[in-house]
Amino acid sequence: MILQPTLLFISGGEIAFILFIAVMVFGADKLPEIARGLGKGMRVLKDATNDIKHEITKTAEKNGIDTSITKDITKELNEAKENLDDFTGSVKRKL
């Protein structure tokens, strides 16, 4: 059986229904404008998050705080996630 990837556990039919409702509520001419605004908002949020991370890292290095421990923790978490993915890969339920 072929498993189809889903976005947030939403099937294609549900996505089509949501798009249909969006077109009915906002109109086809407004959807690109709304999508563009959402994209810009997400970009601003990502840039702000990156700026905050950069400032925290810069301040920590300036004050002599060792930031390598966070890299070690991130590395360990990624390894654990990979091991869990390998383990659950054979156990995934079939649809």
Rank of each mutant, 00 (worst) to 15 (best):
M1N: 10
M1A: 13
I2D: 13
I2F: 14
L3T: 05
L3Q: 02
L3P: 00
Q4K: 06
Q4S: 08
L8E: 11
L8K: 08
L8G: 06
F9M: 05
F9D: 02
I10F: 03
I10E: 03
S11T: 07
S11G: 14
G12I: 01
G12V: 01
G12D: 02
G13M: 12
G13D: 07
E14G: 02
E14F: 01
I15Y: 01
I15W: 01
I15P: 00
I15Q: 03
F17L: 08
F17H: 09
L19E: 07
L19A: 09
A22K: 01
A22Q: 00
V25C: 01
V25M: 07
F26Q: 03
G27W: 07
G27T: 10
G27A: 10
G27P: 00
G27I: 06
A28F: 15
A28Y: 15
D29L: 11
K30Q: 15
L31N: 00
P32Y: 00
P32T: 02
E33M: 08
E33Q: 05
E33R: 04
I34N: 00
I34R: 06
A35P: 01
R36I: 00
G37C: 04
G37W: 04
L38H: 04
L38M: 05
K40D: 10
G41E: 02
G41Y: 03
M42W: 10
M42R: 11
M42L: 14
R43A: 13
R43D: 10
R43V: 06
L45G: 05
K46E: 08
D47Y: 13
A48K: 12
A48V: 07
T49Y: 10
N50D: 08
D51P: 00
D51Q: 10
D51W: 08
D51I: 08
I52Y: 12
K53L: 09
K53D: 04
H54F: 15
H54N: 12
I56Q: 05
I56V: 15
I56M: 13
I56T: 09
T57C: 05
K58W: 09
A60Q: 05
A60M: 11
E61P: 02
K62G: 04
K62L: 07
N63P: 03
N63A: 07
N63I: 03
I65N: 04
D66V: 01
T67Q: 03
T67E: 03
T67G: 00
S68D: 06
I69M: 06
I69F: 04
I69L: 11
T70Q: 01
T70F: 05
K71Q: 13
K71M: 08
D72V: 09
D72I: 14
I73P: 02
I73H: 04
T74G: 06
K75P: 02
K75A: 13
E76W: 13
E76G: 09
L77G: 12
L77C: 14
N78A: 11
N78Y: 15
E79C: 00
E79I: 07
A80K: 11
A80Y: 15
E82A: 12
N83M: 13
N83I: 13
N83Q: 14
N83L: 15
L84Q: 09
L84S: 11
D85R: 12
D86M: 15
D86G: 08
T88P: 01
G89Q: 12
S90H: 07
K92R: 15
R93Q: 14
R93P: 02
K94D: 06
K94T: 08
L95N: 14
